[in-house]
Simulated assay, not measured.
Amino acid sequence: MTAPQRFILIDDNEADNVYHEIMIRRAGFSGEVLVFESGIEALDFLKADALAIPTCIYLDINMPLMDGFEFALEATPLLAGKPTVVLVMLTSSGSPKDRQRVDEIPVIQGFVTKPLVADTVRTMLQRD
């Protein structure tokens, strides 16, 4: 995947979303940042979007109604075969079970422990 031209944050915690967008901007990103406070809303967006823009999705695990794992499984048919999209679990969980589960869902391409920091975003932005 090339460097993202868009970031999508999926997290039910508004404060985390604000902070993570600040870190994305601090890393030097000036493009589009979309924020969804529910996996259901984000899934609806992905179904309607062509997913042609290189996109990095940061996804929280612990959310009501649809957790991050459920989202990833529901989004798999939409994201499979889309080299323009990278899905990364961004969570406060350090649970080995959560890390193992991430490894079992091929569409999830990374695991980052909150809080997101600018250096992590810069690494994503340097992909080519």
Rank of each mutant, 00 (worst) to 15 (best):
M1C: 10
A3T: 12
A3L: 10
L9F: 00
D11S: 05
D12G: 06
E14R: 13
A15N: 14
H20Y: 08
E21I: 11
E21C: 12
R26T: 06
R26K: 15
A27Y: 08
A27K: 10
F29L: 09
S30A: 15
S30N: 15
G31Q: 02
G31H: 02
E32C: 01
E32Q: 14
E32N: 11
E37S: 13
S38Q: 03
G39H: 03
A42T: 02
L43P: 05
L43A: 10
D49W: 02
D49C: 03
A50D: 15
L51M: 14
A52Y: 07
A52L: 15
I53W: 04
C56N: 13
C56W: 03
C56I: 07
I57A: 02
Y58S: 11
I61C: 03
M63G: 10
M63W: 08
M63C: 08
L65I: 14
M66E: 09
M66A: 05
M66R: 09
D67H: 11
D67W: 06
G68D: 01
G68K: 04
F69L: 10
F69M: 09
E70F: 02
E74W: 13
A75D: 04
P77N: 09
L78W: 09
A80I: 12
K82S: 03
V85D: 04
V88G: 00
M89S: 14
L90A: 13
T91I: 00
S92Q: 01
S93D: 10
S93R: 02
G94I: 14
S95H: 04
S95V: 03
P96T: 12
K97M: 12
K97C: 09
R99V: 12
R99H: 11
R101V: 08
V102W: 04
E104L: 13
I105C: 01
P106A: 14
V107P: 07
V107W: 08
Q109L: 01
Q109Y: 00
F111Y: 15
T113F: 00
K114S: 04
K114Q: 01
P115M: 06
P115K: 07
L116M: 13
L116S: 12
L116Y: 09
L116P: 11
L116C: 11
V117M: 15
A118W: 01
V121S: 08
V121W: 00
V121F: 02
R122H: 07
R122E: 13
R122C: 06
T123H: 07
L125F: 01
Q126A: 13
R127E: 12
R127S: 12
R127F: 04
